[in-house]
Design a protein around this nucleic acid. Structure first.
Length: 587
DNA sequence: GCGGATCAC
DNA sequence: TATGGTGATCCGC
């Protein structure tokens, strides 16, 4: 559903920055407007959203960011025009065609990858427990934000990610249902257990979606892929009463796009041959490609690329652009290439653990420290629960203008205690005050896994060369499925050419001398090695403990942690009066 | 290593 | 009246 009114912004036409600018309206409308979306009249809805939001801090912030991008895009266009004058375009095109040929040689059409995506998951789960909701427009809401809107509500423009009050403005009779993580988690677990029968190495990408490689299963059971997927979806429905959609394709990227095709309760099989793949992908609006978001879409559109097929026309420019516009990513997308093998699920190698909360803006030191201390305690809890510690602490703060800043600091010791986190956070924030703050967050990175088998130090030297990461910790099999853009499409500034070498040489091994002694397995013999179907984490425990972990794990990936609801009152008692209206923009 | 920023869910 | 929380990655410096 493409409804962009104007085209050919490609000229160096400076968009005058009115608050009616289409880019701004689209930005305001949020991120999920493009999805599964037969919206009746999108521009009308976008206008309504702007109307309702006008004058809020958030609205002003979005306007500011939109304006920044307009300026950056104007620079991109200038640069492009210069290249068109000075560069030997046909020669560059020939060069790119060679790159295409090299990429083409790596095409793999042998794997049957499936992306399974539950339909309106949170909403349909609630309908299970409350059948009266059937056929009604309702939204499942947590912390004032719509997590899922029922299909009836979507007709009015209500979408996930939208604040409740906007959704209500779009849909007068909208019913609001609070998120119930217990229910969601329970159903999610049932779904995943069914899927696991078809591929024990499946990759779970959230509580309502997963990628499977069916190749082996199809051979073993002598089945056709469509039949297998149909059966799988039937089984999910039988087990849960919920419907799922699925995409069948030779790689992860295509499967993801395909699962959207016949939603809800449908499946789409992209034929496994080059011609059909190319035809399919070339017609696609770039926004449908994973990792091309609002900003990427706008940047590409500015140089005349609206569909994936358009990438070829501008291949020379893309190749010549600063940071080359994530060339490899765009080119491989143009060819419909993507990852064809899923990595087996291993104990998750986390890179960071963090906690953050939004609250009524505060500006007194006392109030700020109180919030910070609370964040520190949340983070301590999570680090403890999951068994991680780290050497780097990052503080995030969002001003009441919605501008976000971060400050970080690394240490030679392991950080995980509340007092430590609080103190470090305070040191990072203090120099920036006074500020009026609406969100605080703390995150630790540079991690060590406290639950890894104790031979961690040894294991370091045995993992494969290619899989080292920069943190100096052993990176086991990476579970990443989605091929990520190697560079971003966005950056405009600075240097043009130069292969972006990402050669990591020997990692710096400061072996930890002080291991906070936590007894490694005390009675390992009696407990089974279990694998959480949600995060893939391995642990030795009984079934009850595993179930407990699974529930907790499911609630993590979702929009918020249920415990934050209980603790919400912590934020409502901003006791003191705030006099000053000072507003410094740090940095 | 630090800080800004995008993107997915 | 009013716009979440978590984690990963990338870029420039």
């Amino acid at each position: 559903m493409n409804e962009e009114g104007e085209e050919g912004v490609a000229k160096s036409t400076q968009l005058s920055q009115s608050s009616q600018a289409p880019s701004f309206l689209r930005r305001l409308a949020g991120q999920s407007v493009h999805k599964a979306g037969l919206l009746p009249d999108q521009t009308e809805i976008q206008k309504r959203i702007a109307e309702v939001s006008r004058g809020t801090k958030h609205y002003e912030n979005e306007k500011r960011r939109d304006k920044e991008w307009t300026e950056r895009i104007n620079k991109i266009l200038e640069r492009r025009d210069e290249l068109l004058r000075t560069a030997d375009i046909p020669r560059v095109e020939a060069k790119v065609d060679k790159i295409f040929a090299e990429m083409e040689a790596k095409r793999d059409l042998t794997q049957s990858i499936v992306h399974v995506d539950m339909d309106a998951f949170y909403a349909n789960v609630e309908m299970l427990y409350n059948p009266d909701l059937a056929g009604k427009p309702f939204a499942v809401v947590g912390l004032g934000i719509v997590t899922t809107a029922s299909y009836e509500a979507r007709k009015y423009g209500a979408r996930s990610g939208m604040p409740e009050f906007v959704a209500k403005a779009l849909c007068k009779d909208l019913l609001i249902v609070p998120v119930d993580y217990k229910r969601v988690g329970e159903q999610s677990r049932k779904v995943m257990l069914v899927l696991r029968d078809y591929d024990p190495n499946m990759y779970i990408a959230g509580c309502d979606e997963a990628y499977l490689n069916l190749t082996t299963y199809l051979t073993d059971h002598n089945m056709k892929v469509e039949d297998c997927v149909q059966q799988l979806r039937d089984r999910v429905h039988k087990e849960t009463g919920l419907t799922a959609s699925a995409g069948i394709a030779p790689n992860v990227m295509l499967a993801k796009i395909c699962s959207d095709r016949n939603k809800p309760n449908g499946q789409f099989h992209l034929p496994f041959n080059r011609e059909d793949v190319l035809k399919f992908i070339h017609e696609l609006p770039v926004r449908k490609v994973p990792y091309i978001g609002r900003v990427g879409e706008r940047v590409l559109e500015s140089i005349g690329i609206k569909t994936v097929g358009d990438i070829a026309k501008e291949r020379a420019i893309i190749h010549l652009m600063p940071r080359r516009f994530a060339v490899d990513f765009l080119f491989s997308t143009y060819l419909g290439l993507g990852m064809s093998k899923l990595q087996s699920a291993q104990r998750e190698e986390r890179k960071s653990v963090g906690a953050s909360r939004t609250f009524r803006p505060v500006d007194t030191e006392q109030a700020i420290w109180q919030k910070l201390e609370y964040i520190a305690s949340l983070l301590e809890r999570d680090l403890e629960a999951e068994g991680w510690t780290g050497k780097t602490v990052t503080l995030t703060f969002k001003l009441d203008t919605f501008q976000v800043f971060t400050r970080m600091k690394s240490f030679s010791r392991w950080i995980s205690k509340k007092e430590d986190l609080f103190k470090i956070g305070k040191e990072l924030l203090k120099p920036e005050l006074p500020l009026r703050i609406r969100l605080l967050g703390l995150r630790v990175s540079n991690m060590k896994d406290l639950r890894a088998p104790e031979d961690q130090g040894i294991k370091k030297y045995f993992h494969s060369e290619s899989e080292k990461d920069a943190s100096g910790s052993p990176s086991k099999k990476k579970r990443k499925v989605e091929p990520e853009p190697e560079q971003r499409i966005h950056d405009v500034d600075s240097g043009t050419e130069s292969a972006t070498e990402t050669i990591k040489d020997e990692e710096t091994q400061e072996e930890e001398g002080e291991e906070p002694e936590h007894e490694s397995q005390d009675s390992p013999v009696s407990l089974d090695l279990q694998i959480c179907p949600i995060c893939g984490r391995e642990m030795r425990c009984n079934n009850a403990t595993l179930n407990e972990h699974v529930d907790w794990c499911l609630s993590k990936g979702t929009i918020m942690d249920a415990t934050s609801l209980r603790n919400d009152n912590v934020f409502s008692n901003s006791a003191s009066a705030k006099g000053k209206g000072k507003r410094k923009a740090p940095g």
